[in-house]
Design a protein around this nucleic acid. Structure first.
Lengths: 206, 206
DNA sequence: TTCATAAAAAGACGACTGGTCTAATTTTTA
DNA sequence: TAAAAATTAGACCAGTCGTCTTTTTATGAA
């Protein structure tokens, strides 16, 4: 690489990054509601206020864009998760309870753009793109690991009664809530969340 | 419309019904793998061996076709369910076990065309078509009701220990397995089913 | 400040696929 | 054989993703 002066390239790089972010933010509610394949790039870019022709300056392809979308969603989700599960004033059972409540709140009726992209896209994307599937794989594994850690600490502090292996309990809980969210989508009603919560309490013995 | 004689329309009606059936059968594996929106009518009709122009003689629209697809899938599924759950030689716990095993077998790796359309389409279709959502709503409700009935009989015959309300247990189980199937899709591995089964045993106390 | 150069945006464009509909053809009935 | 119905071919237009050239903007040196 040739020697070159350090001419602050911040402005350009910054604008580029910001535009990328605009596109991802504009896409999230659209794709969260209609799915990945069903939403065209034109519409996303229109909402983001970025010209169609510029898309390939920010993403290599629609699939690469989908990967970035999932990854940023998961990154954001993990931050929120840490926020909820990391509260050290509460015992583990209380933290799990808050997480379940957070899950419910995310999917209340009326909310249209903020719902869980994992629930929405898992079935569609897993058979569509190996790379997007891999991102979901790692992402859900991470989420389950964090739940598992809280459960393990609950088994120590006594707030969780079940002596089942924490990773297994965590996986079961995550699956249960994943399924309940699907049922909420199908039934347009909230009882599935009530059932998930009741079953969670029984499984954890809290 | 002019008066017309009753000229035995059996053959025509029969052919019509058969063609409709061909289309639905051809579509099931395609849509089961790639989703509803992602599969075009041209491809479905191509596989079915029906000219593209004829589609609207069999279905009013793609959405009406989707409704029929879901309804026939659910009807077929309920028949299989009755077959599995209706075996009177076994007690309720054994019948539930067989149903869970059936669920697993349906989603083993390698199987591509026969997987559960409800899992595949729930997230996509619920936000896309109110009528298709309603079919899924009634369909899943029916499935859960049958599971509930078996659980109730298991609580009577003693093979199921839990005294929780059967409808609630049934809903929880269904959600759990729905979610586990999503996780199997994401992870390309079967442990989610193992976790679902273990959690099912705990919830039912069998 | 001015200018040459490089980076980025713009939007038309191509090749294709989507669901739908009309006009023509084939088949069936009287 | 003539009338009617059922079926089909093909056109249609809106939409898809991705590419390409032109225009605009930003940059660093003189």
């Amino acid at each position: 690489m040739p020697v070159r002066h350090i001419y602050t390239p911040m402005k350009i790089a910054e604008k580029h990054r910001a535009a990328r972010q605009y596109i991802l933010e504009a896409a999230r509610p659209l794709i969260g509601q209609r799915g990945f394949s069903a939403v065209g790039l034109a519409q996303i870019l229109d909402v983001a206020g970025i010209p169609k022709g510029s898309f390939y300056h920010y993403f290599e392809s629609k699939e690469a864009f989908g990967e970035a979308l999932l990854q940023t969603y998961i990154d954001d989700y993990l931050i929120k998760m840490d926020d909820i599960l990391g509260n050290d004033d509460e015992n583990a059972a209380q933290r799990i309870t808050r997480y379940c409540q957070f899950w419910r709140d995310t999917h209340i009726e009326g909310q249209i753009g903020n719902k869980c992209l994992i629930v929405k896209l898992a079935a569609e994307v897993s058979d569509l793109s190996e790379r997007m599937r891999a991102i979901l794989d790692v992402g859900t594994r991470t989420v389950i690991d964090r739940i598992s850690a809280v459960i393990a600490s609950g088994q120590e502090d006594g707030s969780i009664g079940s002596t089942q292996p924490a990773p297994m309990l965590a996986a079961s809980l995550y699956q249960l809530w994943l399924g309940s969210t699907l049922m909420v989508k199908i039934t347009h009603s909230s009882p599935p969340f009530d059932h998930a919560w009741e079953a969670s309490r029984r499984l954890l013995e809290i």
